[in-house]
Simulated scan of single mutants.
Amino acid sequence: MKAIVLAAGRGERLRPLTDTTPKPLLRAGGKRLIEWQLEGLVAGGFTDLVVNHAHLGPRIVEALGDGSRYGARIQYSAESPALETAGGIARGLPLLGSEPFLAVSADIYTRFDYGSLRPVIEDIARRPQERAAHFVLVPNPDYHPAGDMGLTAAGHVTRAAKPWLTYGNISVFHPLHFEGVDPNAAMRLFPWMYEACEAGRVTGELYTGPWDNVGTAEQLASLDRRLSE
């Protein structure tokens, strides 16, 4: 099964660190942020990976190579400029193939079990017209108290359900859902995906384990302290 690791972000709030180092290569707990993700994906059975990149992209390619040191096979999808999440996925589709795939951000830290999504991928493959995607949601962090979307008792993602939770930057998609998305134009995942959510075609789950979205130098330093203890 395949996964795309989204690593094209500029990391504006982490400047000046990201002026010379791509955000996914910043370190916490003795490892690069993206290395924590690669290890988790491989442990979950995802060894065929696509990494997209834009800002200082060659540094990412140089650092990760072909992925063999991580037990993976990495292909790269270059962007210039960065195409946001939906646009970046659309650009990487030729490398991802025709089956459902996992999409994760390179700049989160989590102990989520990616292997638990394999049955989800198999189900989306069987009925893509009914189930376009699956989101992993997390409790709202202090810096995002309002959340993004809700989760019904039946496990469907909708903005009509309260309380809202936060999108965890972990998702499964069927490539058919990206038909019509321009692979050469910047496009964000939201609000574009909300239409599929309100149509009942997006399922979800709540994950309450370790999860950090590293957006500032303070958050990076905090994560580094916790992982180093």
Results as ranks from 00 to 15, higher is better:
Leu25Pro: 00
Asn140Leu: 03
Arg127Thr: 15
Ala133Gln: 03
Ser228Ile: 00
Thr85Leu: 09
Gly9Val: 09
Asp148Ser: 05
Val202Met: 08
Ala161Cys: 13
Leu165Thr: 01
Thr21Tyr: 06
Pro183Asp: 07
Val157Asp: 05
Gln219His: 11
Glu35Ala: 13
Gln75Leu: 15
Leu83Arg: 01
Thr85His: 03
Leu17Asp: 06
Ala63Trp: 14
Phe46Gly: 09
Asp182Gln: 11
Tyr114Lys: 01
Gly57Phe: 12
Gln37Lys: 02
Ala146Glu: 15
Gly40Asp: 12
Pro210Gln: 07
Ala90Met: 05
Ser116Asp: 04
Pro16Asn: 07
Tyr207Gln: 12
Ala54Trp: 02
Arg32Trp: 02
Glu198Lys: 05
Pro16Glu: 07
Pro210Thr: 06
Lys23Asn: 06
Gln219Val: 00
Val5Asn: 02
Lys23His: 10
Ala132Asn: 00
Leu41Ile: 07
Val181Trp: 03
Arg91Ile: 01
Glu130Ala: 10
Tyr167Ala: 09
Leu95Pro: 08
Ala133Glu: 02
Glu84Met: 13
Asn169Met: 12
Ile124Tyr: 06
Ala153Asn: 12
Val202Ser: 03
Pro210Asp: 14
Asp224Asn: 14
Leu25Trp: 02
Met149Cys: 11
Arg69Gly: 15
Ala217Met: 06
Phe173Met: 09
Arg69Gln: 15
Arg118Thr: 09
Tyr167Arg: 07
Ala221Asp: 14
Ala78Gln: 13
Gly71Asp: 07
Ser116His: 01
Ala8Val: 14
Gly168Phe: 01
Leu83Ala: 06
Ala196Val: 12
Asn140Arg: 09
Ala196Asp: 15
Thr166Lys: 14
Tyr76Pro: 02
Gly200Asp: 10
Arg91Leu: 09
Ser68Met: 09
Ala106Met: 06
Arg118Trp: 02
Ala221Phe: 12
Asp212Tyr: 10
Leu17Tyr: 04
Leu117Gln: 07
Ala125Gln: 10
Arg127Ala: 15
Val5Thr: 03
Thr152Ser: 15
Val157Ala: 08
Val157Gln: 04
Gly71Tyr: 02
Lys162Tyr: 04
Ala82Glu: 13
Ala3Met: 09
Tyr114His: 09
Ala106Cys: 08
Phe190Ala: 05
Asp107Asn: 11
Ala199Glu: 13
Ala103Asp: 09
Lys31Val: 04
Pro141Met: 12
Arg118Ser: 08
Glu130Leu: 13
Thr166Met: 09
Pro58Thr: 03
Glu229Asp: 06
Glu198Asn: 05
Gly87Glu: 11
Glu62Ile: 08
His174Lys: 14
Leu6Phe: 13
Phe112Pro: 03
His177Trp: 10
Gly204Phe: 13
Arg69Ile: 15
Thr166Asp: 05
Gly65Gln: 12
Met149Gln: 06
Ala186Tyr: 01
Thr216Pro: 02
Thr110Trp: 05
Thr216Trp: 01
Glu39Lys: 01
Phe101Pro: 08
Gly147Arg: 04
Gly168Asn: 04
Ser222Thr: 14
Ala132Glu: 06
Asn184Ser: 09
